[in-house]
């Protein structure tokens, strides 16, 4: 019984978390700040790609924000 309760509460929590997403967010007219270029997740693609290139050639990790990439013999 208790087990069942726990299980159903997990299911409910999972559904709530999914549905909870609809509590997050903004109305279309509240996008004034998010619409600014500076609020793009990657607001300077050139700088990001230059940095990624350096770290790709100097470290063992790559990717995450975008593709792990490659295309360069530097690593």
């Amino acid at each position: 019984m208790l087990n069942k309760l726990i299980r159903s509460s997990i299911v409910i929590t999972a559904i709530y978390m999914l549905a909870g997403c609809s509590d997050l967010g903004v109305k279309p007219w509240e996008r004034d700040l998010l619409a600014q270029d500076e609020m793009n997740l990657i607001n300077d693609p050139i700088e990001t790609s230059l940095n990624d290139h350096v770290y790709f050639s100097k470290e063992a990790s790559s990717g995450g924000q975008g593709f792990a990439g490659g295309g360069c013999g530097c690593n």
Binding site: K27, P28, W29, E30, R31, D32, A35
Partner: peptide
Amino acid sequence: NLKWLPDTPESIL
């Protein structure tokens, strides 16, 4: 007073 933005013109309150 209008809840409306030029970037999302299709929606208004």
